[in-house]
Simulated scan of single mutants.
Amino acid sequence: MSEAIHSTSTKVTALEAKCYDYEAAAVDLRHGLTAGTEISKRSGGAERKLDDYENRQHRKNLRIAGFPHGAEGANAVDFLERWLPEILGLPGPIEIERAHHTLQRRPSEQGAPRAFVLKLLRYRDMTQILDAARKKGELRYGNSKIMIFPDLSPRLHQRRMTFTPLKKQLRQAGVKYGMMYTATLRVDMRSGGTKSFDSAEAASSFLLREYSEIFSSS
């Protein structure tokens, strides 16, 4: 009888030890998951900060695509400082700090030409160029279609793209708007003044009330 009791006691002790091991492992796992989540949060925060820093460094930059190879001649800055005000009908001159082709292999004669990346001296020149290009519509240099974009990081580009359907509706309705740095939609209100939105969802919700006749069928 005593041997049976001893055997049972030994088994219970072994089971208790295993339970303790399992509990300890579960605690370690929870700590590991918590640490992993914290690391993930910190990593995501660091990525956002780096992305914001990159975009702030590029906030006066533009990308211009479509010029045939060699159109700029010997000096890209002089060429663009002449061409942009002329084709866009800008009220005054612009100043470009530097301009260069994107860092990719030089295309063949049949390949798509490389885009220009240019840095303007003043931020207002950048916004003026983008506004004028949007109002002008299609831009051409000879037979080449020219496109002008902000020089954005992929993450910020995706954020701005969320406004695209809404901007199309505003254009069709003749409502004036503009995209501000970094990803803010500014809309001219018919009651006067402007209103800014940092997300497409917030803009859609508000404009559905303000311009119900435009967005009610969307």
Rank of each mutant, 00 (worst) to 15 (best):
V27F: 01
A115Q: 01
E86T: 12
E38I: 09
R105H: 04
I64E: 01
Y53S: 12
T127N: 11
Y53N: 10
T127V: 13
A133R: 07
E47C: 10
E47P: 02
R48W: 03
G73L: 01
R56Q: 14
L88I: 04
K41L: 09
L120E: 07
E109I: 06
R106F: 07
L90S: 04
P68N: 06
S108V: 03
Q110G: 07
S108L: 11
P93H: 00
L121F: 06
H58R: 14
R42K: 12
D78G: 02
P85V: 01
T102W: 02
P68I: 09
E97A: 15
R124S: 03
A112E: 07
E95F: 10
G32H: 04
N75G: 09
F116N: 00
A99C: 08
L84G: 03
K41Y: 11
T34H: 06
A35M: 00
K119H: 15
K49R: 09
A65P: 05
K41V: 13
E54I: 13
V117L: 06
I39V: 13
Q110V: 13
P91C: 05
E97Y: 15
G44Q: 15
E38D: 10
Q110H: 13
L29T: 11
Q128M: 06
P68W: 04
R106L: 03
G89H: 00
S43M: 13
K119C: 15
R56E: 14
R30D: 12
Y123A: 10
G32P: 10
L33T: 09
L80G: 08
L29Q: 11
E72D: 11
R63H: 10
T34L: 13
R105T: 05
Q110E: 14
L90N: 06
I64A: 00
H101E: 08
K60V: 03
R59Y: 04
Q57I: 13
I87C: 07
L33H: 11
A112H: 05
L118Q: 00
H100N: 04
N61F: 07
G44R: 15
G36N: 10
R82E: 02
E38G: 04
D52G: 12
R105A: 06
R82C: 02
L50E: 15
A71I: 03
E109D: 10
R106A: 06
E54V: 12
K60N: 02
A35W: 01
H69S: 07
H58V: 12
Q57Y: 11
G66D: 11
L121H: 10
D78C: 01
A132E: 02
L33Y: 08
A133T: 12
N55M: 09
